[in-house]
């Protein structure tokens, strides 16, 4: 027996809603954290910020999306209090998204509390650019 579109509509709607929910679930893992970071820094030096954050997975993806204008790039590094003194970092030109990567090449970071450090690379030369404002959307504690 051929079903009309009208009789199939409730089933289709339920399937679409279920699909949407599944997609939402996949796109935003339950424990993922998102925040907006901003500040100002002088170029070509690392600045470390005291706010503590925690990754709760054995392997966590951490990435950020920069906003700003002009040339150069914004790198965000992660300082772990568990002992990883060579810290994870990513470097991204303004207006892009970047995952932080450990020096060993792993695209994930482990459990624990961490702090961020920021490095702005420019090619101003001479006496430099002075203070450079920066803003980034930052995601951490994302299941890898």
């Amino acid at each position: 027996m051929k079903k009309s579109i009208w009789t199939a509509l409730p089933t289709l709607s339920a399937a679409i809603v279920a699909g949407l929910l599944l997609n939402l679930g996949l796109a935003a893992p339950a424990n993922a954290n998102e925040t907006t970071l901003s500040g100002s820094a002088y170029e070509n030096e690392w600045y470390a910020y005291q706010t503590a954050r925690t990754n709760t997975w054995a392997k966590n993806e951490v990435w950020y999306s920069t906003q700003g204008a002009g040339g150069g790039s914004l790198a965000i590094g992660l300082l772990h209090s568990g002992g990883s003194v060579p810290f994870a970092q990513g470097a991204q030109g303004w207006g892009g998204t970047q995952e932080t990567v450990y020096e060993n090449g792993n695209p994930w970071v482990g459990y624990g509390t961490f702090y961020i450090a920021v490095y702005i690379e420019t090619q101003c030369g001479g006496s430099g650019c002075g203070l450079i404002p920066w803003t980034a959307d930052f995601w951490y504690n994302v299941y890898y």
Partner: peptide, 28 residues
């Protein structure tokens, strides 16, 4: 602690520690 003296990546070291960071690590 070594956290402040040894943190580096690619040969770069931290050049500025936010005011309050020593207190944060002391608490830790």
């Amino acid at each position: 602690p070594g956290f402040f003296h040894d943190a580096a990546t690619g040969g770069d070291k931290i050049q500025g520690w936010e005011d309050g960071f020593p207190a944060t690590i002391a608490a830790q």
